[in-house]
């Protein structure tokens, strides 16, 4: 799987390794076989197996066998688990994917993940929340396009992404109790430049 080094977080030996780790760590609630992973990540089957072996030898993942199938899990006993999870979440997690999809909608000034997912980014431990709450600030060009974004995100992330639109003035004024609450809690700024490096 000698894919090129990841642009966003070039500490992994390849983009493929980063995506493999991200899939196993960030979607531990949806385990999948090696063959399934290869299909899902569009990576070569044999190379993915070798990469999985390497990661297992390093103690970053562990595997179960179900019949002839091998299923990878994050190794929560690893001394690197918590920090690696945080790195993968920031580099490959929902905020990145959401930014890629929202970038196609004109008129968005800012976008944030709030709620439980944002709390997880901020380091509050807990299980992955089922839904991801997003606030879009500005005057997006189309509600239908935002609806398509939400649907595409569900397909990519396997989770409902609830997108709420707030005008810029309303966001800045934060007069409602809801917006005051949102702004007082962890907020993750979504990069709308599609992963371009600053």
């Amino acid at each position: 799987m000698r894919t090129s080094s990841p642009l966003l977080l070039p500490i992994f030996r390849s983009e493929g390794q980063g995506r493999l780790l991200a899939r196993v760590y960030l979607h531990a609630d949806r385990p999948v076989t090696i063959a399934g992973l290869a299909r899902e990540l569009r990576l070569n089957d044999g190379a993915l197996t070798r990469e999985a072996n390497r990661l297992e030898r390093a103690g970053l993942v562990r595997s179960d066998r179900v019949g002839r199938n091998r299923i990878l899990h994050p190794n929560e006993e690893s001394p690197y688990y918590r920090e690696l999870y945080g790195l993968l979440l920031k580099a490959y997690g929902p905020a990145v994917v959401i930014g890629e999809e929202l970038a196609r909608v004109d008129g968005i000034q800012h976008a944030f993940v709030h709620g439980s997912w944002a709390a997880r980014y901020a380091g509050e431990p807990g299980s992955d929340p089922a839904d991801i709450d997003v606030i879009v600030v500005g005057n997006p060009a189309s509600g239908l396009e935002l609806t398509r974004v939400s649907s595409d995100l569900f397909a990519r992330l396997g989770r409902e992404v609830n997108i709420m639109v707030v005008g810029e003035a309303e966001w800045d004024a934060a007069e409602s109790g809801f917006l005051r609450e949102v702004q007082s809690r962890p907020l993750i700024t979504i990069d709308l430049t599609c992963g371009e490096l600053a």
């Binding site: 606030i135 997006p140 060009a141 189309s142 509600g143 239908l144 935002l146 609806t147 398509r148 939400s150 649907s151 709420m164 639109v165 707030v166």
Partner: peptide
């Protein structure tokens, strides 16, 4: 189904329906 989804969400605060959406 996209229309259905936006129609449902338009019942709630924060859903966006623009004139362009109506024409579509």
């Amino acid at each position: 189904d996209t229309l259905r989804s936006l129609r449902n969400r338009s019942e709630y605060r924060g859903a966006l329906v623009k004139e362009a959406d109506v024409y579509e």
